[in-house]
């Protein structure tokens, strides 16, 4: 156990060389690698933190947008529902109105139809009644009745008011043609005489008469010139009666 000084020196030198070699090949590269990695990790962590923050920002923004979108969607939805409801109401109202109009129209048409039917029925009945009446009167009419007719007619002429009477008189006087007397049956001589006397009394002159048979009159008499006509017969009665009934019906229909 002794110290070999040459070995000591050699070992010191060896040790120093080893220090250099290990520094060169071990510590320096390893420490550099570690530092580089730590730097890299730090950078990555920083980057990750930044990205995380960014992601959080994006997430918040997205959530905000999403919420806004949801709100808007709900609002739009409600609006749309309200619109649809109002439109539905409007359409329903329209349809209701239309249906009411159609119904009233239909009712009116029904009523009209009913009225028309009634009307035509009335007319038919009336015609039938008139035909029956005129047939009955025609059946009843004869020369004696004519006498009565002439008598009544003469009474009527007498009862004419002044204006009518003067009109009648003027027509008779002015007439150049003979005065036409229409009757259903041939008038008796008395009747002709009575008529002539009456007319002569009115005109105050001798007149020419032309007697014409007119079965259409049913029963009655008609005195006429070219410009004036005075008559009393069953036909005119029936006509006026008919006209009266039509006017009444029209009035009823209007009311």
């Amino acid at each position: 156990m002794e110290i070999n000084w040459f070995t000591v020196i050699a070992q010191i030198v060896n040790f120093l060389i080893l220090v250099y070699l290990l520094k060169r090949f071990l510590y320096k590269p390893v420490l550099e690698a570690i530092d580089a990695r730590e730097k890299k990790i730090a950078e990555q962590l920083e980057d990750a933190a930044m990205k995380k923050a960014e992601a959080k920002k994006d997430k918040d923004l997205f959530r905000q947008k999403n919420e806004a979108f949801d709100k808007e969607r709900v609002a739009k939805m409600n609006e749309a529902i309200a619109q649809v409801n109002s439109e539905k109401e409007r359409l329903f109202e329209e349809v209701r109105k239309e249906s009411t109009a159609l119904r009233s129209k239909f009712e009116a048409s029904l009523k009209q139809q009913e009225l028309d039917i009634k009307d035509s029925l009335k007319r038919k009945t009336k015609n039938a009644v008139f035909q029956i009446a005129s047939k009955t009167l025609a059946d009843l009419a004869n020369a004696d009745l004519e006498e009565q007719v002439v008598h009544v007619f003469l009474g009527k002429i007498e009862k004419l008011d002044e204006t009518e009477k003067s009109k009648f008189k003027d027509a008779l006087i002015d007439s150049a043609t003979p005065i036409t007397i229409k009757s259903v049956f041939e008038l008796s001589a008395t009747s002709k005489q009575n008529l002539g006397a009456m007319i002569g009394k009115i005109t105050g002159k001798q007149n020419n008469f032309q007697y014409v048979l007119e079965p259409e009159l049913v029963s009655g008499i008609e005195i006429g010139t070219a410009s004036y006509q005075l008559s009393w017969n069953i036909e005119s009665y029936l006509n006026s009666l008919n006209n009266n009934s039509i006017t009444k019906e029209k009035e009823n229909a209007i009311n």
Binding site: T7, A10, Q11, L18, L21, L22, F25, V30, A36, K40
Partner: peptide, 28 residues
């Protein structure tokens, strides 16, 4: 023997260090 063994150790250590550190990775 001391010096020779020391040399051998030096070679071993240096060679080992060099072999490992020649392609160090700076990745994670």
């Amino acid at each position: 023997l001391t010096i020779v063994t020391t040399w051998a150790l030096m070679i071993l250590l240096t060679l080992g260090a060099w072999l490992i550190t020649r392609n160090l990775k700076k990745e994670i």
